[in-house]
């Protein structure tokens, strides 16, 4: 199966240069629905789902490959090469910021520009580094997937619900957003929240813009500053938006900041 269909790649827009939008942990490409279309007039706009999320191929999930962010970065490289992307713009939300950074290091010809929305190279505090979470916080999160199997019920994929005998329910869920298999969500959570990509930041050569929200408990302002200080030449913009998902809560502000940068 091609990477394009494996990752449920959707293409729109009329421009030459490609902008690839990747979603973070907990959602799917719907995350970009209020931002990506604004770039259709000037760019070839590509959105995609990571394997295990949204409309990606569930059979492509490999617990070994996706145990670290490298597996996801390899997918980005494959998608980029299949689509013939060169000197494109990678826009990553949350953990996809680091996935995009890894992909740009692996294949520098694909993307010469990185937009990171709420990035964090490491979520767990480490000495003087403040990631925002204690190790026990992440242990609690990972344990909660076993302890509370219905936590992700708001976005379970239809197959997970085992409702073959209730087709009306399946139909309803098919149209829901941010679909995820809770077992995959647990592994993605582990890959995300135990990642440490601090050493990779200095290797990034792409022009980089960091969009930082106020009051973001997933990736705080100190983390944004850390990313800026470790990617040479990068620019940090502190948005007025609060929370972790400005692409949904303040799409106009995000769109404006990206447009000014590219």
């Amino acid at each position: 199966m091609s990477a394009i269909s494996r990752n449920n790649v959707k293409v729109s827009g009329t421009g030459e240069r490609t902008m690839l939008f990747a979603h973070g942990f907990g959602c799917d490409q719907a995350m970009w629905r209020f931002v990506a279309p604004s770039f259709n007039d000037a760019f070839k706009v590509v959105t995609m789902d990571h394997v295990g999320a949204g409309g990606s191929d569930p059979d492509a999930y490999d617990i070994g490959k996706y145990a670290s962010l490298d597996g996801y970065a390899d997918d980005i490289v494959e998608v980029g090469r299949e689509m013939g992307i060169r000197n494109g713009i990678f826009v990553g939300h949350s953990v996809s910021s680091m996935i995009g950074a890894l992909a740009s290091i692996k294949a520098p010809e694909l993307f010469n520009t990185l937009i990171m929305v709420g990035p964090s190279p490491r979520y767990i505090d480490d000495g003087a580094y403040v990631g925002g979470f204690g190790a026990s916080d992440i242990e609690e999160l990972l344990a909660s997937f076993a302890d509370n199997p219905l936590a992700w019920s708001a976005s379970m994929a239809p197959a997970i619900m085992g409702n073959a005998d209730r087709p009306e329910l399946g139909q309803e869920l098919t149209e829901s957003f941010c679909r995820t298999d809770p077992r995959i969500a647990r592994e993605f959570a582990r890959a995300t929240f135990t990642s440490d990509n601090r050493a990779d930041l200095p290797k990034v050569t792409a022009r980089t813009l960091i969009l930082q929200c106020r009051d973001d408990i997933i990736a705080g302002e100190k983390v944004g500053e850390y990313v800026r200080d470790n990617i040479s030449g990068s620019q940090l913009i502190l948005l007025d938006a609060t929370g972790h998902c400005p692409n949904l809560s303040a799409p106009d502000e995000v769109t404006k900041a990206i447009k000014e940068f590219v």
Partner: peptide
């Protein structure tokens, strides 16, 4: 709880925006 906060920020808040 901590896991509820992460669930809310990464999944529930986006869903409330989207649907």
């Amino acid at each position: 709880s901590m896991s509820a906060r992460i669930l809310f920020e990464t999944n529930l808040a986006p869903l409330l925006k989207l649907q």
